[in-house]
Design a binder for these strands. Sequence first.
DNA 1: CGCAGTATTGATCGAGATCAAGCGAGGTGG
DNA 2: CCACCTCGCTTGATCTCGATCAATACTGCG
Lengths: 227, 227
Amino acid sequence: MTRALKLSGAQRAVLGGASIASGLDRQEQDALMSCAVAVRYEPHDVLFYEHDKARYFYCVLSGYVRLYRGSEDQEADIRICEPGDSFGECLVLEGQGYHYSAQAMEHAILARFDLTQVKALLDAQPRIGSAIARSLTQHLLATMDCLARDRMQTSQQRVAHYLLTHCTNEGARATLRLPFQKSLLARKLGLAPEALSRAFSALRGSGVTVSGRAIAIADVDTLRQVF
Amino acid sequence: MTRALKLSGAQRAVLGGASIASGLDRQEQDALMSCAVAVRYEPHDVLFYEHDKARYFYCVLSGYVRLYRGSEDQEADIRICEPGDSFGECLVLEGQGYHYSAQAMEHAILARFDLTQVKALLDAQPRIGSAIARSLTQHLLATMDCLARDRMQTSQQRVAHYLLTHCTNEGARATLRLPFQKSLLARKLGLAPEALSRAFSALRGSGVTVSGRAIAIADVDTLRQVF
DNA sequence: CGCAGTATTGATCGAGATCAAGCGAGGTGG
DNA sequence: CCACCTCGCTTGATCTCGATCAATACTGCG
């Protein structure tokens, strides 16, 4: 990490669109953002480790952050945070320490919120609490979805689902550009990189073409048949 | 389901100890409980299906409820709710439909909260919103924990973890009594019933003795070595 | 050009699902 | 009272998926 800086106008704009600030009016957003500074991390920098005493929560402004459990020989990713995603908000409500480790992938810029300051806001501005709660709800639903998919679907199906929910449609055809490395997508889906590779190979039979980060789906309905 | 009844005194007491009511004072608890009635379900009754329009959220008073995704040939359990656990609260904040199906295991009595009524309470009683948010936080943490374990640990390790976190210690020795059928424990841990059985067999080598629902752990530290 | 990080491909292995059969306890009815 | 059934659990045999290990190709990049 470099230095903590004031949020720029552009960064405040990104933050205003994030789910953590959704439904808040101008004044409430300002109050919330007054608790935040911008911080920058290099690839592979660790923001914090599981069980560390928590002083901040974060919202990704650019780059990617992975949240994971375990250490060294045995790691499992819990969530990959993209721009607009926040993490650690739950500590505003209760808890002393982080429940997972966080590591920046690529260069990442984040809004860092001071937990104590945000806590102090809650009584006067209950709608900020609601915004946090809505954000928690979305994380909960996403995590449950992930858990159910892990338990129910094969690697091919999970990859196909990712493609179908992230592609931009052009009639029957569709395309997408992966926002990050394949190894990170593999982690997100709970797979070894090799398994992701093989899943892509297998999906060629369903009209999926991969070249680097560019992916093309020949026919969306054909791909849906892998379920 | 039979009939909706007023909550009895004993039921209100259970509810008061549930995490959904934690941190609320008498008056707030009363307000919250005024939105609830008691309902009773027979084993295998389905409370609702995924995507059903949501009118209620629930808190388990007795018995067990499993939350699951998928249908018929392909099901995955997301959570097993025990007495004191609530589910569907997130719909107070946003969303129209349930995100999973819910089925009673054994006879189950639940407090059923009317979403519309609870929503109406929130503005006047923001601390009720906080209580719901805290409950969501706990579900989120539990679900992330489950996801990480699924991705990291073998069946034996997950079973051992369950035993160690649910047993009552008596020095090095420890015992516990399963609160429900083994098949339900298997679902909770994301295993086929056969796999749970085999995990128990394997754990015999670590001093675990199983007879029916009664389980004994010869030495807690020995068992911890499976990690 | 050559190197480092990233992705693919092949070969092998192991965990757990699935299928099928057998066991044991509780319940019912003749 | 005992034969019989059902249900939950266990055990064995097999199979499939994905992890792991190892080698090779690909892609920027200094």
